[in-house]
């Protein structure tokens, strides 16, 4: 993205990092089994990238941003999330 410079590099375009899709970094991809999910939202809490969205029941991934770190799968108390190889 190219934008005009501002005075003093003050950036008022808050949250604009969202235009950059870190999902492209992913080599592993989380897959959630919503049947198993108990909606404890631990994965949501621990995600460093805010790439997990809470649903009324269960969760969903925002693959635009998920870097595939695997914290969610490891921290899931009921093993509802598995990491699979990312297919591009």
């Amino acid at each position: 993205m190219t934008v005009k410079i501002t005075i003093g590099a003050v950036n008022r375009d808050h949250g604009s990092s969202r235009i950059y899709k870190t999902g492209g970094w992913r080599t592993m991809r989380p897959v959630v089994d919503l049947e198993k999910c108990i909606s404890c939202y631990k994965c949501y809490d621990y995600c460093p990238d805010g790439a997990i969205k809470k649903l009324d029941k269960g969760i969903t991934y925002d693959f635009d941003y998920c870097k595939g770190c695997g914290i969610c799968a490891k921290e899931c108390p009921v093993q509802a999330i598995v990491m699979i190889k990312e297919e591009k």
């Binding site: 190219t2 410079i5 501002t6 005075i7 003093g8 590099a9 003050v10 950036n11 008022r12 808050h14």
Partner: peptide, 27 residues
């Protein structure tokens, strides 16, 4: 050019990459 105010959140002290740094200095 902006002030630190939660009503209008601005980032001061951005990281200026080679794509922008020279233009900031020129300005």
């Amino acid at each position: 050019h902006g002030v630190l105010d939660p009503k209008e959140p601005a980032t001061f002290g951005s990281f200026g990459t080679p794509d922008y740094y020279q233009e900031f200095k020129h300005a």
